[in-house]
Structure formats: C-alpha cells, structure tokens
C-alpha cells in the first residue's frame, strides 16, 4: 500500500517539478509558451535517446509520461522499437506510431469540440 502512495507522491513531485522549470522559463526569459513546448518535446527525445528518461519514467510513472517531455520520450522509444523490429523504415514510422493515439485524439476531440461549442467572450 505504501508503494502505491509513494508512486503518487513521486508522480506529483516530478510532474510538478517539470512545470516549475517551465514556469521559471516563462517568467524569467522572453521564451513564449510555444517555444517552451518545443524545447520540452525535443528534450524528451534527447533524454530518451541517451537513456536518461527511462529512469525518470520508471521512478515517476505518470509524473514523467504526462508532461510533454514524456511525449518526446514516447517518440524516441517508438523509433527505437520500430528500428529493432523493422529496420531502417522504423526511423520514419516509429515516432508517430507510438504517439498516434494522442495526436489523433487531439484532432478528433478538437473537431468534435468545434462542432459543439463556440469560443466565449472573455
């Protein structure tokens, strides 16, 4: 039982820490949110590629997979698995295959939301 609770604590702490780093970048530098997201995804790919992110993911669970670095990690893991399985073509197919659920879900839910809702006045 304590293992489960600890898993939540780690997820909270690591996920929160990823957000704090981005918050500092937003407030202290001129980086726009879009640039920060790009930096996070690419960092995820790099950290996944050099094998560091695996440890963070094993330790923090959703605390590592839910932040956008986890998206980058999934891309790199996908590429690696696809190359191991199918060879060179995996370079191109692996990344998007591994992340296709998230991308497709975003697009379809966005379309549905746009059919149902309208932007509100602020």
């Amino acid at each position: 039982m304590t293992d489960v609770i600890l898993q939540y604590v780690y997820a909270f702490a690591v996920g929160g820490a990823f957000c704090v780093i981005a918050q500092i970048l937003i407030d202290k530098t001129k980086l726009t949110p879009a640039r920060i997201l790009v930096a996070y995804v690419v960092s995820g790919v790099v950290l996944g590629g050099i094998g560091v992110y695996k440890y963070i993911a094993d330790f923090a669970g959703a605390g590592a997979s839910v932040p956008l670095t986890g998206f980058g990690y999934a891309l790199s893991e996908g590429v690696k698995a696809a190359i191991d399985e199918k060879g060179a073509i995996g370079i191109l197919t692996g990344g998007l295959t591994a992340t296709s659920a998230g991308i497709a879900a975003s697009m379809v839910f966005a379309l549905l939301a746009a059919l149902i809702f309208k932007s509100k006045n602020k």
């Binding site: 918050q23 920060i36 997201l37 839910v66 932040p67 986890g70 975003s106 966005a110 746009a114 932007s119």
Partner: peptide, 23 residues
C-alpha cells in the same frame, strides 16, 4: 501557467482552442 501548459493538457488545449476559434 506552466502547470497546465507542460502536461499533455497544454498540448490538447493548443489544438482544441484554434479549432474552436477558426471555425
């Protein structure tokens, strides 16, 4: 701020909000 931006929620919001707006 970054609390909703960095998780996958930020990515999803950045897809859904232009869809709504540019309809």
């Amino acid at each position: 701020g970054a609390g909703t931006l960095v998780p996958i929620t930020g990515f999803a919001n950045s897809v859904v909000s232009p869809a709504l707006d540019n309809k």
